Amino acid sequence: MEDRAMKSKHGLLLIALAICTLPLLSNPIVPKYISEITVDASRWLIELHNPFSDPISLDNYLLVSNTSKASFKKGLFMDENYLVVTQESLENQFHINPSADYIKLVRQDSTVLDEFPFAALRKGQSWSLWADWYYLDNSPTFGQPNDTLNAMCQILGSVTDSLGNPIEGITAYWGHATPWPEDYLHLDSNGGFALRVLASSITFTFEKENYEFLRAYVGAYPESTITVHYTMKVKPANSVAGHRGHQLSSHSLSHNFPNPFNGNTLLTYQLAQDDFVEVSVYDITGRRVENLFHGFQFQGEHRLMWDAFSEPSGIYVFRLHTPNVTISKKCLLIK
């Protein structure tokens, strides 16, 4: 009995040591409060959920879209229950574009608590939260926890060379088109694969020595089956052998111009390949001041203008973030 107790204590000690030696997260997941949203030409619904035990009063908060903003009626709280917000929950008229919009939950002091850019929905669908990204759901669950019962998509795919022959030794990954890590994708002897995934934007990456790096995106819709095929091309004989990491790190972010600046400034960045991109501005304390862009962009040069007339003088940081690369540049606002 004593020997068993000693082994038990030893096991607990090993677990404790393992926990203590885990690296601290330098960029933990930011809490999400917008849990579900649906919108069509006749109505909209937004579900808010606070995953923490302390309720948050919405008296000093606003809902903001690309074209309007509205304050909440007094006495509403966001807590562990699922609060369904409608037009009747707000003090004034609030408009959401059903084709595409950018919804923010904002404090009166302009601090953004949460935000969600979304694309058009089919009637009866919702964008629902899973971890810190959103999926398409054919059976919305407003007022209760989200489920995935009618939100799965089957993807049947293959990857071959230009002659349709399988390529041995391909390294393949798949993932949701977010900053989440990619997972290994198993290919059979014919280069085929099958996945059952939550409906959202899915990214595939394929690499093989002497072949061009391949990244592809596909929109996965709920309760559907999608068939895809990808072709890997042999690198030209005079090309330099590349590496996936080098490909991704070739995204670049230039210093804004002018810098220092007073009022507004121009930001330029280059994408080495098509990618999902988020460009934000942070103050020196790490608070996000503004999101300048969030979405898919094609390879090439892109420019964004930041209007900082409402911000105080100080040092700010531009951050370019993709699923695999984060680049930051400082700037100085002088008024």
Score class of each variant (00 low, 15 high):
K235G: 04
Q247M: 08
R319V: 15
V281I: 12
Y33A: 05
Q154N: 10
F296Q: 10
C331D: 03
M1I: 06
I34P: 00
L271V: 00
Q273W: 01
H243S: 15
V279P: 03
Y173Q: 12
K9L: 15
L187P: 07
K329R: 15
E80T: 14
S110F: 05
I334K: 01
D275H: 02
H294L: 04
G175T: 10
V112A: 08
H294Q: 10
S42Q: 12
L24F: 10
C331V: 10
A177Q: 07
S252T: 04
V317L: 08
P166Q: 09
E278T: 14
G286Q: 11
T86E: 01
T21D: 10
E47M: 14
L248K: 03
D109L: 05
V228I: 15
H294S: 15
S65I: 08
E223G: 01
D137S: 15
S139I: 00
R319G: 05
E88D: 14
P23S: 10
K69V: 03
L333F: 05
W174Y: 15
P145G: 08
Q144C: 05
R107N: 13
T326K: 07
R287L: 03
F193N: 06
V281F: 00
S224H: 06
V240T: 14
E182H: 06
T160E: 07
A216L: 02
I96R: 01
V112Y: 02
V277G: 04
G175L: 05
R43V: 09
E207A: 04
N190D: 14
F52Q: 12
I96N: 00
L14Y: 10
D59L: 04
K69D: 03
